[in-house]
């Protein structure tokens, strides 16, 4: 195996970004609003993973702090969605 670890980290980060592309499809076409929000939450957790991997591959340890913040604060929009914005079937035919 002639990988160095940094290259492996970058490769895994690229793979996770491809995953995010697939989740973007779900965020755009998901049948119910909750599915879109779940896709957004997936962006939060996978984005945390990508940031940690980039911190290792790019050699800038400050990105670990960014990952910490992202892991905690991506949940806020999810909570706001569940508590305030998801009202049921009204959203389906809501053309504003």
């Amino acid at each position: 195996m002639n990988f160095t670890s940094a290259e492996l980290a970058l490769a895994v980060a690229l793979f996770l970004l491809v995953n995010l592309g697939a989740a973007l499809w779900r965020a755009a076409r998901g049948p119910t609003p909750a599915d879109r929000m779940l896709a957004a939450l997936l962006f939060g957790s996978t984005g945390t993973g990508i940031l940690v991997l980039l911190a290792f591959a790019g050699g800038s340890p400050a990105l670990v702090d960014v990952a910490l913040t992202l892991a905690l604060l991506a949940a806020i929009s999810g909570i706001a969605f569940a508590q305030r914005a998801w009202l049921g079937k009204v959203e389906e035919d809501d053309a504003a």
Partner: peptide
């Protein structure tokens, strides 16, 4: 921390 946040959001949704 990610586990706590994820559990809170999952329960809420």
């Amino acid at each position: 921390l990610a586990l706590i946040a994820s559990a809170a959001v999952g329960y809420s949704i």
